[in-house]
Design a protein around this nucleic acid. Sequence first.
DNA 1: CTGAAAGCGCTAACAG
DNA 2: CTGTTAGCGCTTTCAG
Lengths: 356, 356
Amino acid sequence: MGITINDVAKRAGVSKSTVSLVINNRPSVSADTKEAVVKVIKELNYKPLKAAQAITTKKTKNIGFMEIVATHENPEKLATKYGFSTMIPTFAYDVARGIEEETQKRGYGLLFTTYYGRLRASVRAVPPMIKHYWVDGLLLVGGTFSESFIKMLKKWKIPLILVGSHLPSYSADCVFADYSGGAFQAFEYLINLGYSKIAFINGPSTTQTSFDKMQGYLSALQKHGIKFDEKLVEAGDFSAQSGYEAMHKLLKKNKDIRAVFVGFDGMAIGAKKAIVEKGLRIPEDISIISFEDSWIATHFDPPLTTIKIFKYEIGLAAANMLFDLMSIQKAGKPKKVVIPTELVIRDSCRKMEREV
Amino acid sequence: MGITINDVAKRAGVSKSTVSLVINNRPSVSADTKEAVVKVIKELNYKPLKAAQAITTKKTKNIGFMEIVATHENPEKLATKYGFSTMIPTFAYDVARGIEEETQKRGYGLLFTTYYGRLRASVRAVPPMIKHYWVDGLLLVGGTFSESFIKMLKKWKIPLILVGSHLPSYSADCVFADYSGGAFQAFEYLINLGYSKIAFINGPSTTQTSFDKMQGYLSALQKHGIKFDEKLVEAGDFSAQSGYEAMHKLLKKNKDIRAVFVGFDGMAIGAKKAIVEKGLRIPEDISIISFEDSWIATHFDPPLTTIKIFKYEIGLAAANMLFDLMSIQKAGKPKKVVIPTELVIRDSCRKMEREV
DNA sequence: CTGAAAGCGCTAACAG
DNA sequence: CTGTTAGCGCTTTCAG
């Protein structure tokens, strides 16, 4: 493997414990010895073996990133099977960038694992990195897991943060975008533009985030005295295809839709397709607002007005929360951090001029 | 940490070496003892500590995934700074799915790290996971690295595979799509459609893949006796924005472009924008063909004809090559695996009818 | 402030 | 086929 702490100790004329003290820069080393040891470390280009440190300190200095993808199978596999991409990967990837920024800074490794479908409690679902004590903490990214799954994971007593979603019970620390607030913003924006009959393409009803968005929808309606009409609501599964189908149905059931809120950028692509197929124009005939503000939004035609999720910031916050959690002896009440969204106005919505 | 090999040994009434033999299912254990030990392992829910195994076997059972992003900085950071996404993350992410499939199957962990900008040789650029012997092999995903960077990495004597790119010298194992063949396919398709004046938006000239595409372009021209015209070529940096700028310039310099090959789906989005701004239609006025066949292609308007890269398969192949490489004692000649591309015809190209 | 000694959890000869 | 013994490379008491 190469050069060890013994080599350094010998060469520096000190004991290996002293070298160890230097490596972990403990204060109890005299400036002189420290300097000498550091010099040798540089000369030999010595790096402590992480595994050896892990075994003695009981800390791996690794954290796990567990992505939970909504589809029941690997999307790329599905894509080659069906000939088209069903899912637009962007949330976890962007969040990961924020997380990595933080883990790199702290010298931690980031272990990835992906799970597909809706996760329920089953020992099989426990990632090996946990079972084999290969990570000190876990980031759970995505929303399609059950409460029982989290409960089971917690039995392993590993510090854990939910990223991008949360549990109704708030029994685990979590950081996520303000989905209900964001949906509220979206609807209020549309309402202020003069619309009262606003269609809503939500995500799958099994996810907490879709539930939250629905709450935002409902309270916006309530605040403005608009009656809820279930004919105006459809659910997709985050894929573009499902957005297409949902919009199609919506247009069929309602002749007079002039505005629609789509719960996720990816579905907006499909929704647009359905709109265009009907010979309708955006925003002249239909205003559309979406959620997430992924890079798609800027390059949408017309540029898409969206509720922006600060994914990078969520990743940063999640990593920091996890490090905090890991350094704490005893867990207190689970923390919940909600990152505000932001209305980004582009060109896909306009004032309603008259009813159809 | 929990329960150790000693606990199992004690409970099963055997020595820990026997337990070890069972764990690594060596043949030399009698069926009876094995059964007994396995039973205890289950009862106690014992899992060997990976770090301890790593220290004795000198194998971490982890492999590293090093993504090299073209931008000099974190794209998400850039996005929040500039207010729009510059880069479309999809290649590395999709490749990762194939890799993970394989690593999961073999019980390996996958460590991620991302580097930004063009990588040159500098000790700073060596990822900690390598320096600290935290991975048994490395997958280098992306194309913006220099030959010297690879040379430096190889000094660490770590098995390494280039994924999605290659070195002119072929001094490292690599697996990548047939960029030159793919570009050839694209141009020949356009030529067969009747075009002879074909614009080309390539990637950055510093990347090997762009060089390859250029080769494909050149040989297609040569085969069909078309003269190379530098006014028809522009380079972007893979971002949508750069595609927009390149197309804009192309349209300005050449009044009569009727077909364009864009070296990457992400740039096609920008190119389209420039085309539409000119009041031109796709494919009526301009045919456009792109490279990669990411999910964008299906949802492009009109659906984008592309040269498809089999990213999932590349990931699978890369992982397998790495495992092979790791199991070999002495490295032979570097292997080079080229994954063929495929022409996927959709609606963004049509036969040329007449010159403008 | 530094060194000696013990030990983390596991694997790997080597006897028997 | 199984147990004993000796480490792997590091951290951590605990003397001095």
